[in-house]
Amino acid sequence: MSQLSPGTGSGSPGASVGPDFPDLPEATVARLPEYLRALSNLAEAGNDTVSSEALAAAAGVNSAKLRKDLSHLGSYGTRGVGYDVALLVGQIEHVLGLTHRRAVALVGVGNLGHALAGYAGFGSRGFRITALFDADPRLVGKTINGLMVRHIEHLADVAVQEAIAIGVIATPASAAQPVADVLVRAGITSILNFAPCVLSVPDGVDVRKVDLAIELQILSFHEHRKASLTGVALTGVAQNGVAPVEGVGG
């Protein structure tokens, strides 16, 4: 089983899983889409080359980390010139398997699933949602963004017909594991899970988990920490006999 979350995983730099395919550290894989987004924006703006510093700033990482990541792809740039934008886009798209659009099945078309089904940004990133599924008879048969919602019992047949590569779960937590089982039985080995639970899947099935509540809780921690540090600073000011700034602490 492979349960992947941002910043975790394995992979030995320099190892190879095939003739021209590097086995990248998972942290590097997680950053490649950010580099690709930044490079695409640079290309649209008419830039042919970019320095490592400029690309790192656009992607939100430090330049040393970026250069190390790109070295795994065999791309080192040219001193005094930087990286060829179009060439680097091609290299990253090749490694990420984006040279052709991947078909995606979305299971669960409630509020979140409905929003995902209508998101136009997937197409420009190399994906196309080709099938929508649900078990709710009130939703089955409805059309969302040009696609009719089918009953999940038809998933296996549709997965073969549409050559679906990735399954997205946007169901309540209680339904997520049964849905994952259906996806696995249909031969889908890559799953993006929005349900707030951990899935049990066989070896060889990769799962990425997106839990918005967890991300908010992490931000809450940072807010709590900043408030605590501010309180400590204000306490220190008061103990030193310095008047607080007007409107603060009074």
Rank of each mutant, 00 (worst) to 15 (best):
H94S: 09
A238M: 11
R225I: 06
A117H: 08
L199T: 08
G118N: 14
S16E: 15
F133L: 10
S5I: 10
V184T: 13
A165H: 14
F221Q: 11
Q177I: 07
V237A: 09
E162R: 14
V95W: 01
V182P: 03
A105Y: 01
D203L: 09
I164S: 05
G82L: 12
G167Y: 06
I169G: 02
I214K: 13
A105S: 11
A238N: 10
V210D: 04
G123C: 02
A173I: 00
N145L: 04
D134N: 01
A227H: 08
A64T: 12
N62W: 01
G236H: 13
G80T: 10
G97E: 12
T78F: 08
V50F: 03
A105D: 04
L132E: 03
T230N: 14
V140I: 11
G231Y: 05
M1P: 11
A186H: 05
S16Q: 15
A173H: 02
R102N: 09
A165D: 14
L66T: 09
A15H: 13
S75T: 10
R208V: 01
G108I: 01
D157L: 06
G82V: 12
L32S: 05
P19G: 03
D48I: 02
V61C: 14
E153M: 00
I188S: 02
V17G: 10
I188H: 04
V182K: 09
E93R: 15
F133R: 13
T28D: 07
V198S: 11
P137I: 02
E153N: 10
L147S: 08
I144L: 15
A58H: 09
R128F: 01
A170P: 13
S75P: 00
D181E: 14
P33V: 04
D157A: 15
P25V: 04
I191P: 03
V182F: 03
A38F: 10
S63G: 01
S220V: 02
I166R: 04
T8M: 02
V242D: 09
L192K: 05
D84A: 06
V85H: 05
A213G: 12
K68V: 06
K142F: 02
R125D: 15
H100S: 11
G11P: 02
A227L: 07
Q91M: 13
S200A: 13
N193P: 05
G18M: 09
H72N: 15
G80S: 05
D84N: 12
A186E: 08
C197N: 10
G46C: 01
L199V: 05
K68W: 11
E223I: 14
P33K: 06
P33S: 04
H224A: 14
